[in-house]
Design a protein around this nucleic acid. Structure first.
Lengths: 242, 242
DNA sequence: TCAAAGCAAGTGTGATCACATATCAAAAAT
DNA sequence: ATTTTTGATATGTGATCACACTTGCTTTGA
């Protein structure tokens, strides 16, 4: 009986081959729409149609409608009584509501992460910070998309360390809801704003490295508050003009 | 021109007729599954099939698969790599994780509600409390479903007063995730447990009536912690036996 | 000239079909 | 007797169709 030999051969094969994964079309559509939403590629109040998205993503309507349904339950999109779906419009109340929730939950997450991040994770986020500096150094073209992605990686690398399978999906939902809002703030941000962001991020990392949960939380609150307060004042003045 | 007369006639009709509403089949399926999950009608680790649910709910597969997808994104259900879906199993870590998140978010919600609930809302929750007492008074049959519904109404009547369109869906998601867990605790609860629940609820109401956010939060934490710690010790001992 | 009716294109929803994969028990091979 | 193979059934996924409703423009009527 060559059972042992076969077993050994299978193990060798398993070591060489990476799992191919079986992502469905629906999952890819969902991920793509998430990416677009968080990146602020859709404008607030923009309406989305199933067939339109299906054409744009080169699939049929079926995966799109299922992805839209999922995004609607996450409040990342909004179902109108007309049965059409749009990205939620910005209001003053919504901005304050979102910021409060983000401070509450992301603050808790980073506070938990402070006592759980090892040198390994600290090094990773420091690497992301360095990568960011490099991009800002050669500032010929405004690679906003790259910065958004990097910012997202930075934050979620920290949140992932909090070890909560419940909090992280909630934070993802909050980012999904905030995405269309803060994009307009990002575009309007001057060089000064980005310098601030980098400083807050560095403060967060050093606080995390020393296990100072309170300092990390405060730096995070300052970081995520800034685009919201900026957007708030902008909306406020726009409202007064009318 | 009888335009004014027509207008008046239309208003009369509008006053007599109630909006008929256009709830889709998918929405009804979703609501029904939510109710079942929060009520703990499904057991942890139970697998659900699209066609099975479609038969049980007397519809086709289409609305069911969409409802399942939405519940999966809310983490109320879990998609296995086999592409089958089940209600998430209970683990010690998950219990602690859920309780921490619920204390954080529902605590914030009730704290906000404390300064926003008027006499009108206070009266409503007091009415729910009285209704509960009546049910407990004629305790011939264990109407657990009714108590679960009443408990849910009580809490969400308060949460709704917090005025946050962001926090409330998150709390709903947390209840969806907790439902299958706490059902086993509810069944095991003795009469003593229910008396405690009623006491905590009364404490909450009087704290809310006097606008004492801190006291309301503490009573809430005690209320929602109890089934979790009960379940925790039960799971702990079951684990030690093996 | 302007409001109301009518028409046509577009859109979401649900049903059904086809296909690939998963599951499990019976049969075959060792 | 145990393991492997095989075959039948069940299940999720995506495509397509039919239907109802919405929307915006054109046409009709006052």
């Amino acid at each position: 009986m060559q059972k042992a030999a076969i077993e050994r051969n299978n193990e060798v094969i398993a070591a060489q081959l990476a799992p191919v994964g079986r992502e469905t079309v629906q999952d890819r559509v969902y991920s793509e729409l998430r990416r677009a939403l968080i990146g602020g590629l859709f404008e607030p109040s923009q309406v989305l149609t199933i067939r339109g998205l299906a054409d744009a993503l080169v699939t049929s309507t079926m995966p799109v409608r299922e992805a839209l349904g999922r995004l609607i339950t996450e409040k990342a999109l909004e179902a109108l009584p007309n049965r059409s779906v749009r990205v939620p419009p910005i209001t003053l109340e919504r901005i304050d509501d979102l910021l409060r929730a983000r401070i509450l939950i992301e603050g808790e997450a980073i506070s938990l992460a402070a006592s759980r991040m090892g040198p390994r994770q600290i090094a990773t986020v420091e690497g992301l910070l360095r990568e960011w500096d490099e991009i800002r150094a050669l500032k010929h073209k405004k690679d906003v998309d790259r910065e958004v992605t990097l910012n997202q990686s930075f934050h979620f690398e920290i949140y992932r360390a909090c070890g909560s399978a419940v909090l992280i999906p909630m934070i993802e939902s909050l980012w999904l809801q905030s995405g269309p809002c803060i994009r307009v703030a990002i575009y309007a941000f001057s060089e000064a704003g980005e310098v601030d962001t980098a400083r807050y991020h560095r403060t967060m990392v050093s606080a995390l490295a020393s296990g100072d949960a309170q300092a990390a939380r405060e730096a995070l609150v300052a970081d995520i508050s800034r685009p919201f307060t900026f957007l708030r004042s902008k909306l406020q003045s726009a409202k007064e003009q009318t």
